[in-house]
Design a protein around this nucleic acid. Structure first.
Length: 422
RNA sequence: GUGGGCGUAGCUCAACGGUCAGAGCACUGGACUGUGGCUCCAGGGGUUGGGGGUUCAAAUCCCCUCGCCCACCCCA
């Protein structure tokens, strides 16, 4: 195979037709499920000033340190292609003073995100996310609704065999104490931790809990659990959330070692995972970020949200049967005059809402019929000199082989009346 | 950034260092002068990713390079 003269950018994929139907179905399911919970669509930009992301996601996070597409615009300002959606939604919420509207304000969005990582299964440099964010409610009732909305959407689109993992990582009041408790626990074996974790020990000891290196796993066996270090308020919030999820019949697994990679999370964090995804097992993830609006200069406003990895979801849904629309009519024409008539007829049929395909290139009737069959058309119309002279079209059902003749004037009605019964 | 694997027709893949690099699918046409699916026949398509080396002889062995994939890491 000769190499493409103009190759696509690494990790930036095209999404082709069978998959785009799935994508459309997903967007329809998204609007349906999310609107039942009162979430409204928000269109956020693809670029932001860089500090929108560095402030929110965290200066020392991997995303900010090594994964962002950042460049200077023509005026010398630092611009970044969004690596995620929450930061932009919060920026918008504060900039447009949406906190003055009655709480809660609930939004969803979808679109491409960009991260400069080595591509692998379930990980591209440009990837799509569907996300939702709810502002203004601190009660665990909102956490439960958001998680239940996510589960409803995933089930509605046909996803099976996924797990909901749940954790609470505390708030700004109890986390510092936990951080210190962790440092205390790891201090004796600090030298045995992997180099990354030795760095994490200083910057963000919570991330050591997430490390996959065997030695680090071993060393954290006796480490204190976040859920044991929560302040009374966080403990009660978490307890009530679990109770609400139980009531709703949403199954979840507690994972006290789940730590999210974005700095803005507080209290509730959750992930939806599937073991069919390879090593990138998370298909959706989210959590509470009660301090972020304030961080952006707005009033203290509790908030919670999640994001879904669209390509990962598509991958998991691949096996599923999909209703792909097929043409209503294929018009086969023989000869120049008939070809002109075919164009006219196609126009009339399309005006009635029919999907019409034409034969091209003066192909033989046989090959035109073959193409009609391969396209999956329900009916074929045949026009030749005989038909032109008689003012009729021959029709044939490609489903059952029945055939007949019909006048030009009756053709649109013929298709229209059959369309719904196909 | 670090490992490992793989690059042969549009796609999926064959070919002990030794005839002219093949098959299935797809495409075009025919058998069936104007009627699809099934079957059969024929046809078009390849710098074997690129460059260098070893050899009488390289898709095959060696080196370099480019690309892709998977994994680590991290995340959706």
């Amino acid at each position: 195979m000769s190499p493409a003269r103009y190759p696509g950018v690494k990790g930036v994929e095209d999404i082709l037709p069978p998959d785009t139907y799935l994508l459309q179905e997903m967007e329809a399911a998204m609007r349906e499920a999310f609107s039942l919970y009162g979430f409204k669509e928000l269109r956020i930009p693809v670029i932001e000033f860089t500090d929108v992301f560095t402030r929110s996601i965290g200066e020392t996070s991997d995303i900010v340190e090594k994964e962002m597409y950042t460049f200077l615009d023509r005026a010398g300002r630092s611009i970044t292609l969004r690596p995620e959606g929450t930061a932009s939604v919060v920026r918008c919420y504060v900039e447009k003073h949406l906190y003055n509207l009655p709480a809660p304000q609930k939004f969803f969005y979808s679109g491409p995100m960009f991260r400069y990582e080595r591509p692998q299964k379930g990980r591209q440099r440009q990837f799509y996310q569907i996300g939702a964010e709810a502002f203004g409610v601190e009660e665990p009732k909102m956490d439960a609704e958001v998680i239940s909305m996510l589960v409803m959407f995933l089930k509605g689109i046909g996803l099976e065999g996924f797990r909901v993992e749940l954790n609470s990582i505390g708030c700004k009041n109890c986390r510092p104490a936990y951080r210190e408790a962790l440092r205390g626990a790891f201090a004796p074996g600090l030298g045995s931790l992997c180099p990354d974790c030795q760095r994490r020990y200083e910057l963000n000891p919570l991330r050591i809990l997430d490390c996959k290196v065997d030695k680090c796993r071993e060393l954290r066996k006796g480490a204190p659990l976040v859920t044991d270090s929560l302040c009374p308020e966080c403990r009660e919030h978490f307890r009530e959330l679990k109770s609400l999820l139980d009531m709703l019949g949403i199954r979840y697994e507690l994972n006290p070692e789940m730590v999210r990679g974005l700095d803005y999370y507080s209290r509730t964090t959750f992930e939806v995972t599937s073991d069919r995804l390879g090593s990138q097992s998370a298909v959706a993830a989210g959590g509470r970020y009660d301090g972020l609006v304030e961080e952006f200069g707005g009033p203290a406003t509790p908030a919670i949200g999640f994001a879904i990895g669209v390509e990962r979801l598509i991958y998991l849904l691949k096996e599923r049967e999909l209703d792909i629309p097929l043409p209503d009519v294929f018009i086969a024409a023989i000869g120049p005059a008939a070809n002109r008539e075919a164009v006219r007829l196609a126009g009339r049929l399309r005006a009635e809402g029919a999907w019409v395909e034409l034969g091209y290139g003066g192909a033989s009737l046989k090959s035109q019929m073959r193409r009609a069959d391969r396209l999956g058309a329900a009916y074929a119309f045949i026009i030749g000199d005989d038909e032109l002279g008689a003012g009729v079209f021959k029709w044939k059902s490609l489903k059952d082989g029945s055939a007949g003749e019909i006048s030009g004037a009756d053709a649109p009605g013929f298709i229209k009346s059959r369309k719904n019964r196909l």
